[in-house]
Measured scan of single mutants.
Amino acid sequence: QVTPQEKEAIERLKALGFPEGLVIQAYFACEKNENLAANFLLQQN
């Protein structure tokens, strides 16, 4: 279960064009650090 703040962060990451499953994995792998997760996702392409 995610908090409203976490859900907002996940939605912002999804808005970058990444699928939800990948976003969630990256977000939690980066210890819920939205900026770190965004950098991680962008570097995967």
Rank of each mutant, 00 (worst) to 15 (best):
Q1M: 12
Q1C: 02
Q1Y: 03
Q1A: 05
Q1K: 13
Q1G: 07
V2E: 13
V2M: 15
V2W: 01
V2S: 10
T3V: 10
T3H: 09
T3R: 06
P4W: 01
P4G: 10
Q5R: 12
Q5K: 14
Q5G: 11
E6S: 05
E6G: 08
E6Y: 10
E6K: 03
E8M: 15
E8Y: 07
A9H: 04
I10D: 00
I10P: 01
I10S: 00
I10W: 02
E11D: 10
E11V: 06
E11K: 07
E11M: 12
R12G: 03
L13N: 02
L13F: 01
L13T: 01
L13S: 00
L13C: 00
F18G: 03
F18A: 10
F18H: 09
F18T: 03
P19D: 14
P19S: 08
E20M: 09
E20A: 03
E20G: 05
E20F: 03
G21A: 15
G21R: 12
G21P: 15
G21C: 07
G21S: 11
L22G: 04
L22F: 06
L22C: 09
L22E: 15
L22R: 12
V23G: 03
I24C: 10
I24S: 13
I24P: 09
I24F: 11
I24M: 13
Q25R: 08
Q25K: 02
Q25L: 02
Q25V: 03
Q25M: 07
A26I: 04
A26N: 06
Y27S: 01
Y27M: 08
Y27V: 03
Y27T: 00
Y27G: 02
F28W: 07
F28I: 10
F28C: 10
F28A: 14
A29I: 05
A29E: 10
A29Q: 10
A29M: 15
C30F: 08
E31K: 10
E31W: 03
K32N: 06
K32P: 00
N33S: 10
N33V: 04
E34N: 00
E34L: 02
E34D: 05
N35L: 06
N35E: 14
N35P: 12
L36W: 08
L36Y: 11
L36Q: 14
A37H: 00
A38T: 09
A38E: 15
A38R: 14
A38Q: 14
N39M: 05
N39T: 13
N39P: 03
N39S: 14
N39E: 13
N39D: 07
F40D: 08
F40Y: 11
F40V: 08
F40K: 15
L41S: 01
L42C: 09
Q43M: 12
Q44G: 09
